[in-house]
Structures are given as structure tokens and as C-alpha cells.
Nucleic acid binder design. Structure first.
Lengths: 146, 146
DNA sequence: AAGATGTAATTCACACGTTAACTAAGAACG
DNA sequence: CGTTCTTAGTTAACGTGTGAATTACATCTT
């Protein structure tokens, strides 16, 4: 049994797929001097409300060291606020600021347009099916790691 | 029309999918002190034969600046060799060394085992179908970028 | 209450991703 | 020929990914 060729490997396919998709979003993010990860953090806080750092890191798929840096940068730019959690001096509570919300809303139409363009090329049903399969893959691998 | 929630966005799904898959490979790579990208370069050269830098970068989905660093590191470790292309002093011809090939072969059984584990959890047909859909996605986005 | 253990977040070190600027070599054109 | 333009690769600057070590605070144990 041979190992899969690089042209048919799941890690490579996922990587390339993510590249072609992100290529659509990068110009928008660059225009506002926001990194992809900062954008994830902003959206997550906008959708889920205030979160603690660990929870935010998990949901945005960002590692703790990266999140520390991102929070620092976005706090300075006044896009998010940070406060201590009562009764536990270790935890930090992070929330999006009005300025952060304003950015999200400003970009909303463009986001929709980009998603429409992607779906138009790939097909709405294909898009939905792919999301389902990716969820399935993620769930399938999330059990015990023997 | 609302933008997609973060829980149903293609970039996030692709990112998380890649994470759960790479989690299987990381221990193996760490044991041999090889990064994921170095591993991609090695495999590519092993499968495709000697390549020029630009071609290698494209096929391994690595940006030129990263490839420069990777080549430097792997040349020092004697896993790859570099030579000038005759009649064009700009191009570099990169090839895997015997030591590099030996590493590939040493890891081959473990690679197969990891892929088997992934397929066992996700399902062989699902795996194949997902690869097809990812290819389709990549092809669909690869036209003109308006 | 004091020490051991656990947890949240940060820091450190190093590699890669990304964009822009740069160098060097070839090709095109006058 | 020499000038200009293009191409291959590198360098620079900054942010993120990753694993290990560290700090600060909570909790558990006795």
C-alpha cells in the first residue's frame, strides 16, 4: 500500500482550497489593514458576544500565543475591550467595541458579495455539501487520539 | 442577505479540517525535526524529480520567500541539493538527496498507517468524494479573478 | 493556613505566511 | 551595442503558527 501522491493528499487539497477561497477576501482585509486572524476574532466576538480568551481561541481556531498578540494589537486600535473576570483574576473577558462593530457592518455588504461570487462559481449545492462533508470530517477525527 | 455565520463559513471549515488532519501527522514530523513545509518540499522532489524553485513553490503551495528559507535549511541538513541551471544563471535546480530519499522511505510505513487511520474514521468513499469536491472547488475558483 | 497541584494567560524562540522592495540575469528593442 | 523591460530568486518587515517554559491566580490536600 503506497502513501498517497501529493496530488491526491487531503492536507494539500485543504491547503489549496483555503488559498483559493482566501484570495477573494484578502484585498478587502488589506484595504482595512486587518489580518485574517484579527478578522476572525472580531466576527467571533460580534456573533457570540463577550468571551474569555480560551473560549475565543478555541472558537476562532487561534492558538493562545497568537491570540495574546492579536488582542494587544486590537485593543490598541480600540476594536475590542478587555476586562478581568470577577472572582477569577486569571481570566480575561473580551468584547467587541462599537468601533469594531462598525467595521463589521461596514464590510458586511462586501462579504456577502464575495460569498455570492464563490457560490456562483462553485455552485450553491456543492458549497453546502462541501461544508457538510468538512463538518463530518472534523467530527470524525475529534474522538480519542489513540 | 446575511453574511454566513462563523460556524458555517468555508474558510473556517477548511482551516479546522486541516487542523484535525495535520494533528495526525505532527508527532511524526516533530520526531524527525522536520516542519510540515519541509516535508512537502521533500515529498514533491521525491515524486516529481528535480525542479526549479518557482515550479517547486507552486506545486508545494509555498511562497517564494518561504521556499528560500526552507531550501537554505534543508541544504544545510543535506536533504536536498541545489545547482544552477545551464544557460540561465537566475534559475536554481533543486533535487532531493539520498539522505532525503532515505527519510521519505523511513517514514513511508507510518504515513500509510496515518492515512489508514484517517480513512477508517472518515470512510474511504467519503474521503475520495471530499478530495474530488476540493479539487472541484479549486478548479472553480482558478479562472480569471475579476 | 502552607504547600502541592491545576488552570488561564503570557512570554520565548524559531519557522512560515504575506506583501513589498530589491538584486541579478536574461530578453527585447532602439 | 546599450537601454529598457521582464523574470527568478532573495531580502526585509511584520504578523501568525507551534511547542516549551513561565507567571499569576485558584483550588485541592492535609
Amino acid at each position: 500500500m503506497l502513501p498517497p501522491s501529493t496530488r491526491r493528499s487531503l492536507p494539500m487539497a485543504l491547503l489549496r482550497a483555503r488559498e483559493v477561497i482566501m484570495a477573494h477576501f484578502r484585498p478587502m482585509l488589506a484595504r482595512h489593514d486587518i489580518t485574517e486572524q484579527q478578522w476572525r476574532v472580531l466576527r467571533m466576538l460580534a456573533e457570540a458576544g463577550p468571551l474569555e480568551a480560551t473560549e475565543l481561541a478555541n472558537q476562532a481556531s487561534i492558538l493562545p500565543p497568537s491570540l495574546t498578540r492579536i488582542i494587544k494589537a486590537m485593543e490598541e486600535r480600540k476594536f475590542i475591550t478587555r476586562s478581568r473576570v470577577k472572582d477569577d483574576g486569571r481570566r480575561a473577558r473580551l468584547a467587541i467595541s462599537p468601533a469594531g462593530l462598525a467595521l463589521i457592518e461596514e464590510l458586511a455588504p462586501e462579504r456577502v458579495a464575495i460569498y455570492d461570487a464563490i457560490e456562483k462559481r462553485f455552485g450553491v449545492e456543492q458549497h453546502e455539501k462541501l461544508l457538510d462533508m468538512l463538518d463530518g470530517l472534523i467530527q470524525s477525527q475529534n474522538g480519542e487520539l489513540p
